[in-house]
């Protein structure tokens, strides 16, 4: 997940004066590398930042299942059908893990999974920019597994030591499965890269199309770019280690040489490695577009939310039927 929390600056003050002592104990635990558990005292800004981060991460997994899922019934071989089903299932599974973590954090506010889904549907809970994009060809199924998941792996492994225990444990499980996802994506990509002219063409077209979204994946480099970014609090509370640009550089470093080795071209002529400063140079994507996309104004935002809405509404009778009866007076 990127480190960009819409309206992140509005989170509450960390603690009240009477909690000064608790806050000091809390910070000492954080600085000692201890894990904070769901029922431990925590400052309000820590809880709120975690809720925003983890509910967005979780719901992005759930929404992230949808673009790839478009290609599940269409997968071209029996082996690919099995692989992509297992992969998309994992995304739902990751959503399950993360939403459970977020739900426990929201408990003091009396909020549940139902509220999370409703927040998603009414636009209060945002999902990751990449999942607002269309998947137009089978190559996109590979690109999501290879590059989008690759970017996700980089941002998630960066939080494997996160101070919040339940999140850290969920990430541990998730990252273990991501290794399979990466290889699943690579396998699809490799077959296309070594395939027919048409296959190589859809691969290049897909890569070019995904490029800006991949740059956006990690969020803006600084608060100035979009106006609000909560990078500092994440690092102060040891939720993550690196900032957005550092993570983006890791991604470019790991993935660009691989893309080049497959004969892929980046749709940005300025892209090169600056040896002196040890960083990749690239043209900034359109951060205004990014802001529009995550406000549910991306190319597929409405359609994907509609799928989720129908699934939620159309199955309501099932949840109602099995909800234990509560005797009320």
């Amino acid at each position: 997940m990127y480190n960009y929390i819409p309206d992140g600056d509005s989170v509450a003050k960390a603690y009240t004066e009477e909690d000064q002592g608790k806050y000091e104990v809390f910070m000492e635990r954080i600085n000692n590398g201890e894990k904070i558990e769901a029922d431990d005292w925590m400052p309000e800004d820590y809880r709120q930042a975690l809720i925003k981060l983890i509910s967005m991460h979780g719901i992005s997994e759930i929404m992230g299942a949808l673009p790839e899922k478009e290609w599940v019934p269409k997968a071209p071989t029996l082996k690919r059908k099995l692989g992509i089903m297992a992969k998309v299932q994992d995304e739902m599974g990751h959503g399950q893990l993360l939403l459970r973590v977020a739900e426990d954090l929201m408990k003091p506010y009396g909020r549940t999974r139902e509220n999370l889904i409703e927040d998603l549907l009414n636009g209060d809970l945002k999902f990751h920019n990449v999942f607002h994009m269309p998947t137009k060809t089978w190559a996109d199924a590979g690109m999501v597994g290879w590059m989008v998941d690759g970017a996700a792996i980089i941002s998630q492994t960066n939080m494997l030591d996160a101070s919040y225990g339940p999140y850290q444990r969920a990430l541990q499980r998730i990252c273990a499965e991501e290794v399979f996802h990466a290889q699943h994506g690579e396998a699809i990509i490799m077959a296309l890269a070594e395939g027919t002219k048409e296959q190589r063409e859809i691969l290049q077209e897909s890569f070019s199309r995904w490029w800006p979204s991949l740059l956006m994946f990690f969020g803006p480099a600084s608060a100035e770019t979009t106006g609000s970014s909560k990078q500092d609090i994440m690092i102060k509370y040891r939720i993550r280690k690196s900032n957005n640009e550092e993570l983006r550089q890791v991604f470019l470093n790991k993935y660009l040489p691989r893309a080049f080795s497959l004969g892929l071209t980046v749709p940005d002529e300025t892209v090169h490695y600056d040896k002196e400063n040890e960083r990749w140079i690239y043209q900034q994507p359109d951060w205004n577009e990014f802001k529009q996309i995550i406000k549910n104004k991306g190319p597929m935002s409405k359609e994907r939310l509609r799928l989720r809405e129908i699934a939620y509404e159309k199955n309501r009778w099932v949840r109602q039927a099995l909800a234990p009866q509560v005797i009320s007076s």
Partner: peptide, 28 residues
């Protein structure tokens, strides 16, 4: 496989998909 992501709740989605995968494995 068409149901993937659309089941009545998330936990069921995951469990259902395992069955779907197993079933495809049998077809194979």
């Amino acid at each position: 496989s068409e149901w993937l992501g659309l089941a009545p709740h998330i936990e069921e989605d995951v469990a259902f998909s395992s069955i779907t995968q197993n079933t495809m494995g049998h077809a194979v």
